[in-house]
Amino acid sequence: MKKIISILVIALTFTMTSNAQESMSKEEAVKTVSLEQTKGQFTQKKLTLSEGSYVFEISNNNVGSDVGFVLVQKGKDASKPENHIKTAYVTKVVNNNTKEKTNVTKLVKGEYIYFCPMNPTPQYTLTVK
């Protein structure tokens, strides 16, 4: 009976360790993309990324007002909020001379546009290969 209990404890420990390592590797796979806004524009005019999970860190570099971030699949009407990728919204508006992050956003192959509706900026291209 002691052998069976020992085997069960070892199996349970192995399973818990394996699950914890899997969770950690998923978290490590999230990459951060830093974007800077100045008055009326992003300093990064075009991005090329690989498929995966991303957090966008948006910097407000002395714009003089709050800024935000919108990401939309190319070809969809960016003026309609229902087409926005909601996880790519900053979690809080970006005050002057501060940074804020988005939630984790999974990107698949294709083209997207990004812009700030508050600053406002032109629409820029983000390509996922």
Rank of each mutant, 00 (worst) to 15 (best):
S23G: 07
E36Q: 10
A11V: 10
K74I: 02
P81R: 06
K26M: 09
V67E: 06
K2N: 07
F115P: 01
M118T: 15
L126M: 11
T105Q: 02
T105A: 05
F42E: 06
V93A: 07
N19F: 12
G52L: 08
Y89A: 03
P81D: 02
A78C: 00
S53A: 15
I10F: 12
F115C: 08
N61A: 14
E22C: 02
A88G: 00
P81W: 00
Q37W: 04
F115W: 07
S6K: 13
T98Y: 04
N62V: 05
N103P: 05
Y112N: 00
A11P: 00
C116F: 01
L8H: 05
E82S: 12
S65E: 11
L35I: 12
S34V: 15
K92Q: 15
Q44S: 10
K99G: 08
D66S: 11
Q37A: 02
V30Q: 09
V33M: 10
P122W: 06
F69P: 01
S50H: 14
Y89M: 02
V55F: 00
V30R: 07
V108D: 15
K101G: 02
V30A: 08
T32E: 15
K26F: 07
S59Q: 14
K106R: 10
K74H: 09
S18L: 12
L12N: 14
F115N: 06
K74W: 04
Q73S: 10
A20Y: 15
M16D: 01
P120F: 06
P120H: 03
L12D: 11
L35N: 06
N103I: 01
I10V: 15
V63F: 03
E100H: 03
T13S: 10
T48P: 05
M1K: 13
K2L: 13
V33C: 08
K74S: 13
A20M: 12
V63L: 09
T17N: 10
I113K: 04
V33H: 07
T38A: 05
E36P: 02
K92Y: 14
